[in-house]
Computed example of a mutant assay.
Amino acid sequence: MTTPPLLPDTMAAVLLTGHGGLDKLVYRTDVAVPKPAPGEVLVKVTACGMNNTDVWVREGAYGTEEDAAAVSTWRRQGNTLTFPRIQGADTVGTIVATGEGVLTGRIGERVMVDFSIYNRDDDSLADIDYMGHGRDGGYAEYQALPAENAHAVDTDLTDVELATFCCAYLTGEHMLERAGLKEGERVLVTGASGGVGSGIVQLARARGAIPYAVVGKGKEQAILDIGAEKVVTRGVADLPEAVAKATGGRPIDVVADLVGGPLFNDLLRILRPEGRYTTAGAIAGPVVQLDLRTMYLKQLQLHGSSQGTRKDFRRLVRYIEDGKIRPLVGGVHRLSDFHRAQSDFMAKAFIGKLVVVPDAVHDAQADGRS
Rank of each mutant, 00 (worst) to 15 (best):
V43Y: 02
R76N: 15
D129T: 15
I95L: 06
E141F: 00
R110L: 10
T53P: 01
D30W: 10
D90E: 02
E66M: 03
A37M: 12
V71I: 14
E141I: 06
A47S: 10
N52A: 14
T80K: 07
P84F: 03
G88C: 02
Y130K: 07
K44E: 15
A140S: 11
V96M: 10
T73H: 15
D67K: 10
Y142K: 09
Y62N: 04
G60K: 07
A68K: 11
V31Q: 14
W74D: 01
M50K: 00
S124K: 06
A61P: 00
D129Y: 07
N119G: 07
R76Y: 09
G134E: 01
Q143R: 02
G101D: 12
I86Y: 04
Q77I: 12
E40C: 02
G138V: 00
R106Y: 06
L145H: 06
N79Y: 09
D122R: 05
L42I: 06
R75S: 14
A69K: 13
I95R: 03
R110Y: 11
A147K: 12
R76W: 05
M131G: 11
E109A: 13
L103E: 14
D127I: 03
V45R: 02
N79T: 02
P38G: 06
V33H: 09
G39C: 10
E65Q: 13
E66N: 10
G60V: 09
G137P: 03
K35P: 03
S116C: 15
A144W: 07
P146W: 00
P38S: 11
V113S: 00
V96P: 06
K44H: 10
W74Y: 12
D30R: 08
V71E: 10
G134A: 15
V33N: 09
A37W: 09
V71M: 09
G63F: 11
A126P: 01
V113M: 01
V43D: 00
M50W: 01
A144Y: 05
W56P: 04
T94Q: 09
A126E: 14
G39A: 11
V92W: 01
